[in-house]
């Protein structure tokens, strides 16, 4: 699948990721317990698990956005495309900030809530581009190009619209355009389609998959829905109890689920008539 010279080289290599949350009284609860995961260029990897399995905290920890009191250890080596890989978990706050948005994009669930209700669509783009040093004169064009890539017409009306004026699908596309405006190498999409109807969901995921393959970047698709994972991911990693319990090519994994938890997920999907 990878068209790179070194097909084995992952774009992101997560090793021994441990995520712990401080609970009251100085106690610590381990949420993710030694997670290993490789993401390859041009591929969509789905991280599947039920609610509370730690998949969202895993995704957020990778870019230093875990809530207060949640600490991540381990390594997450990102091939930034220039020079040696950088460990996302070991970056200083300033360097991490430069990586976020530019090298690693993130889209979270509830796109509408992910946009500041008091800031216009265009304002979101200009402040993001400004934060990464894009000259003022180029910001509008870059934002419009990103909006066009996600299938939106970058009209003045859209540029000056407030988030509440957008539909759910439009808001999700704007959020994706915003996260990909600087062409990141890695895009993390956390449950981005949970709130969308089936048709819009398919459109958004087709779009993300197309962009990932075309740009040779990597997409980490965090979802609880094995059906989504099976249809849009190249590889599936199943997370249960803070560990990857099963990992492999999507088709093979779904055809012959080895772990009881995956079998239950597959069976549940069939039972629901999906």
């Amino acid at each position: 699948m990878s068209r790179r010279a070194a097909p084995g080289a992952p774009l992101l290599r997560v090793g021994g990721l441990v995520v712990e949350a401080a609970t009251g009284g100085g106690a610590v609860r381990r949420i993710v317990d030694g997670l290993d995961l490789d993401l390859h260029p041009g591929e969509v990897t789905a991280l599947v698990g039920r609610s509370g399995s730690g998949k969202t905290l895993t995704a957020r920890s990778l870019i230093g956005l875990a809530p207060r009191g949640v600490l991540a250890r381990g390594s997450a080596l990102l091939d930034t495309g220039d020079g040696a890989p950088v460990d996302l978990l070991a970056l200083s706050r300033r360097r991490l900030r430069a990586v976020r948005g530019a090298r690693v994009g993130a889209v979270f669930q509830e796109a509408q809530a992910g946009l500041n209700p008091t800031v216009r669509v265009g304002g979101h783009f200009t402040e993001t581009l400004a934060a990464h040093g894009v000259p003022r004169s180029e910001r509008r064009a870059a934002g419009a190009a990103a909006l066009a890539r996600v299938g939106l017409v970058p009209s003045t009306g859209l540029w000056t619209a407030y988030p509440f004026e957008l539909s759910g699908g439009q808001a999700q596309r704007v959020a994706i355009a915003l996260a990909t405006v600087l062409a990141p190498r890695l895009l993390i999409a956390d449950e981005i389609t949970s709130a969308l109807d089936a048709v819009t969901r398919a459109e958004v995921l087709d779009l993300l998959r197309g962009q990932t393959v075309a740009a040779g970047c990597a997409l980490l698709l965090v979802t609880h829905d094995l059906d989504v994972a099976g249809r849009w991911a190249d590889r599936i990693a199943v997370l249960d109890g803070g560990r990857i319990v099963e990992h492999g090519r999507a088709a093979a994994l779904l055809a012959a689920p080895a772990h009881p938890f995956t079998r239950a997920l597959v069976g549940g999907d069939e039972g629901a008539g999906a």
């Binding site: 870019i63 956005l65 900030r97 976020r100 948005g101 993130a106 993001t128 915003l178």
Partner: peptide, 9 residues
Amino acid sequence: RAARGLGLS
């Protein structure tokens, strides 16, 4: 969170 994820200071 999204704003921080986009690299804003």
